[in-house]
Each structure stands twice: as C-alpha cells, then as structure tokens.
Write a protein that binds this DNA or RNA. Structure first.
Lengths: 227, 227
DNA sequence: ATGGTAAGTAATTAAATACTTACTTAAACA
DNA sequence: TGTTTAAGTAAGTATTTAATTACTTACCAT
C-alpha cells in the first residue's frame, strides 16, 4: 500500500462536487462561457483551464462533454451562425421595403457585432489557416446563407424598381457583406467596437447610392424629393 | 573533468558553420523568410525552429538578431506597411484623374494581397487581441496613412467635380478600405485568394456609383434616365 | 599578424497546455 | 430500493516551444 503512493493515490474531492448537469446543458454552458470570455480576451489565449474555472468546473470535466477543444469552438460558431441568421432574417422581414430591409440587416449585423465583439475574433483566428478546417466550413456556410438573404432582398428591390438598371447583383451582395466586414475590421483595429454604431448609417447611405434607382438616389438632397 | 560531462560538453559544430552575415542583412532575410512561410501556413503555427531551419540557421541564432519572436512579426509588418504604401502611392500618382486613381489603388491593393496572401493572415492574427499590441499599432498606422491617401484622392475628385454633391468623404474613405478588406475576407474564406482578381473590378464599379457625380453615373444606363 | 567583436552552434530549460486516467458519487431508472 | 450510468474530481503525461547558455570561430580594424 505504501508503494501505491505514486500512481492512483486516494482522492477524496476537496471541492464539494458541483451539481451534475446533463451533457446537453453543460455544452450550452460551455459555449456561452467561451463566447463570454472572448469579449475581452483573444480566443487563442483561452485555455481549457480558463474555460473550466470560469464556470467553476474542473478542467478534465470539459472533455466529458466535448471530444476536443476544437469541438468547443466549432460549437460556438454553430451557435453564432444560428443566432446571427435569425437576427438578420428578423431584421429583413420586419422592414417595409426591400431597400429598407437591406438597411435593417446592415444595422442589425453591426449591432450584433457590437454586442458580441468576441465573434469576429473567433473568425479572425480561423481565417489565419490556409487549409480548410471544420470551423472555416461552418463560417463559410454562414456566409453563404447570408449572401442568399442579401441576394433575395436585392432581387426584390430590383423587382420593385428600387434598383438602378443594370446593377450587378452578385457584386452588390459582395460589397454589402464586405462593407460590414470592413467596418468591423477597422473598428477592431481602433480598439473600440462601439465606433461602428456611428459609422454604420453613413456607410450604408453610400452603399444605397451605389445600387439605388435615380429617384430614390435623389433623397440625398431633401428639398427636391419627388413623390 | 569527468563531472563536467553533463553540462558544457565539447561541441564541435557538425554542420559547417553558415557564412556569417551582418545583423542587418540577417534581419532582412528573417523577415523575408517569415513572409514566405505565411504564404502557405498559419503565422501562429510558425515556430522559431521552423523559421531558422527554413533559412538553414540554428534556432538560437535568430535571437542574435531579434530580441523576441514578437519583434520578428513586428519587423515583418513594418516591411509590409512600407511596401504596400509605396505600391499604393505609385498606383495613385500614375492615374490620369482622381477617380481613376481610386480605381488604380483599389486594384493595386487587391493585387498586393493576391501576391502576398500571408499578409492578411498576420493581420488577422493580431486583430484577435483586444489589447493594443505594438504590431496592432503598426497596422493602425498603416491604415491611417491609407485613409489619408484615399481622402486626398476623394478631395481631388471633389474639386474636379467628379463626385456627387454632398458625398460624405470620411464615410467614403471607410467604405473604400472596407470594401477591399471585405473582399479579402470573403476570398480567404473561400480558400482561393485569386478569386478576388475577378471580383474586384465589378465591386469597384459599384463603389464608383456610390460616390460619382450623376453625369458619370448616367453612363450606366444612357437611354433611360427617369425624372 | 592579431585581438576584439559579434554571429554562429548544440544543448538545455522552464513553462504551458490539451488530453488521459483512475477513481468517486449524484442522479436516473427499473 | 438497489443498480447502472455518466458527470464529476485530482493528478498525471507527453509534447511543444520561446528563450538562454556556454562555448566556438569568422571577420575586420588596428
């Protein structure tokens, strides 16, 4: 019995064992905690120990619910994709016209990032890798759905005569998403993501100038507004 | 003398000692090698050992020329900032009109990224950190200079009557840079940066619609101009 | 020539850190 | 109620990796 000192050893838990929850609810808690930690730290710097102790759990316990650390980030991204798309779809469908829908989506996206500044950090981390990772595929799927939403709105706008004739819809979709992403990058470089809020409306106004039909385009100078 | 076997030990270099270069030229070589390695690997995955062996040097030798690994990436970013700004300034000054200058800068930036796909990877890595790092400051400086270049061109365009009345110049600068950055992000998600080349011209055309004076704007659909 | 400087080497080190293991026990359920 | 199962624990381990060290030697100015 003396020789056993080195390996197994008697282990009576010092900390009163944390209430046992189902894997399902723990997974959700882990995802939420990871997302919370990214709000003021680099995702790359978040260790499994950090995560576990942030939720009052032992480090090893995480691996009862996720097979690997990567799987945790993948789940985070899935959560994000689902919620962002819901938010953007809501914004789109609550608007009165397609063009207003685009504006609503633009502002909703910006608001989402301001509330969840950790999300772009997770994406940035993944964009470093040239090879295709599962997480990158998930982000790509999100982007694809996003592009479809925008393209749909653009088509509706076109059908309603709100767009300038000959507008290149695929390019317009790329520019739309790119504008938001560029805004995000610039604000994160500056340090305060909140900057985006003020910058977003004038930038969208410009975007609208790029695609809108001449009649609406005239809205810029209010005094000569037909209709 | 026998006891000394463990620590110092006789060390006759097995590998014939590499030709000795000045710190200055070694620094340049290290920066170039780092940049080269980022073309097909994540910057985060590049270890000092990787770097050293890629240039046929011992790992420890790197630290004769840079005080830390971070300092290497900082030097890389300095190199990038200098060369990118030179390239963009060249593009701007070789154009015939301010608007053509904007187009040339846009395309030159895209071309630069296609040739150096590792550069955005380094930037993405840094954007993860919420806190301000020296490297982030360097990128911010680059961005500031970039914005000044764009703003200058916009002002020239405005003075030449090429812009729509009332165009929001700061927002136009943000949208310009954001468009390129967004293009980069989307193409890196897709995996092939080369995609950008084809996407860039139509996206810039749209940008031009956003800011250009109506006369040029009408070029799109000459026959039907309602109102 | 020659002595000092600094660029080079191989080996070591200290700190992290993802994941595993051996064991414990709360809770679901038959 | 007793048994099973799965969520929990503490304590490993294996590996990676930036930086340091002790020593060697090429190169250059005097």
């Amino acid at each position: 019995m003396l020789a056993d000192l080195k390996h197994p050893v008697m282990r009576t838990p010092v900390r009163p064992v944390r209430s046992r929850l189902s894997t399902e609810s723990r997974q959700a808690e882990i995802v939420a905690t990871a997302l919370r930690l990214t709000q003021d730290r680099s995702p790359a710097s978040i260790t499994t120990t950090d995560l576990a102790s942030a939720m009052g759990l032992s480090q090893g316990a995480l691996f009862k619910h996720f097979p690997s650390k990567d799987a945790i980030w993948l789940a985070v991204m899935s959560w994000v994709a689902e919620h962002l798309l819901l938010t953007l779809n809501d914004a789109a469908s609550s608007a009165k016209s397609p063009l207003e829908g685009l504006r609503a989506v633009f502002l909703a996206h910006v608001a989402f990032v301001v509330e969840q500044p950790g999300v772009p950090r997770v994406i940035f981390q993944e964009l470093q890798h040239p090879e295709d990772t599962p997480l990158k595929a998930r982000v790509r799927g999100l982007m694809q759905a996003y592009r479809m939403l925008i393209t749909g709105l653009l088509q509706q706008a076109q059908a309603a005569g709100q767009l300038a004739a000959g507008t290149d819809l695929p390019a317009a979709a790329v520019l739309f998403i790119g504008s938001v992403q560029g805004l995000v990058m610039q604000s994160m470089l500056g340090g305060q993501v909140g900057t985006m809020r003020a910058l977003a409306p004038p930038v969208f106004d410009l975007y609208q100038q790029a695609i809108a039909a001449p009649t609406i385009r005239a809205r810029r100078t209010p005094e000569e507004n037909p209709e």
